[in-house]
Amino acid sequence: MKPAPQLLVLTLGQGLAGGMTASVGFLASIGGLNHRLALLLLGAALFCAILGGGASFFHMHHFSAARYILRRLKTSWLSREALTTGLFGGTLFLLTVATVWGRLALNSPLYIALAWLVTFFGLVAIFVTAMLYASIPAMLSWHSPVTVLNLLAVGLLGGSGWGGFFGMVEHGPSGQLAAAVAIFLVVTGAVKAFQWHVFSLARHRIRATTGFGLPFAPYRLQDSGTTRAPYRTQTQVHPVISDGLRLRMAVVTAIFLTVLPIVLVILSQIAAEWGWMLGAAISITLGSIFERWLFFADATHSSRVFFADEPREASRVAEPVMRGRLS
């Protein structure tokens, strides 16, 4: 499908914010939080959250109806997302204000509890967002618990990367921080690998036999109703990325999101230089962006059966002449 920039920013921002808040809680819990560190991390988290929230706002096209957005809390994960993301953003803001205000002792049980509470709201927000994707049967690639794990893992990993970096700047090498990052790296790597498998299964579920009740496969789509598939109006289907692009993006994602950071984290510990950790955090963030792009771009929607060919058959969709206009 067409990855909407707003959704990339929203999910990345929300994940990073949640992850960074978690770092705050973690650092506080291990007694490693100081004021500067707290402000840096909370500031960055708030920045990401605002970026994400802003993006999600602009993902709406019909602002005047925004007032109805909480109407369907009972059924709609999007309604719930508006609520939980708002709750997270709000409490994050309050925690930041409280931290700036400076009256709360940073490593006090109260602060620790508050930090973990906000983190909890953050994780709930990520969970709800992830459920929004995971609960749609038609989004064949996403309709699985892996989607929830994936969003949580990538968010926590991103946050821990930055937590590790800021922590190292303040305190020098910390085995605990490095271990936390490393654990998230391994978990995320595993989740990601599993999810790509799920994506591949989803692609192969696109079959005319169910889509059409046709007796003989293979089938060949000759026409989707208009000469070309509807780029503007069917964003959940088009464009379909090529095998080559998918593979390249997956390799790049794997390198930036896990392989390179692992090396960098290890180097940071050996060399005791926070520069390596900064590299790891940046690499993870870039990797998350690639990961998220691929998460959207490569998602298979069931209606693709009516708009594109079976795998391995070239798509009938011609190159658009006016690329600019159609992108």
């Binding site: 993902h59 709406m60 096209h61 019909h62 602002f63 109806a65 925004a66 109805y68 957005i69 109407r71 709609s76 999007l78 929004l132 749609i136 049967p137 038609a138 989004m139 509807p230 503007r232 109006t233 069917q234 964003t235 959940q236 289907v237 929607h301 069931s302 209606s303 693709r304 009516f306 708009f307």
Partner: peptide
């Protein structure tokens, strides 16, 4: 009048029959 144009319903529909009007945002 109450559609915000989030297009989540387009994802949810298995058949790809919902289409988005960019100008009207619905």
């Amino acid at each position: 009048d109450s559609c915000i144009g989030c297009q989540l319903c387009m994802w949810a529909c298995p058949y790809g029959v919902r289409e988005f009007d960019e100008e009207e945002g619905v």
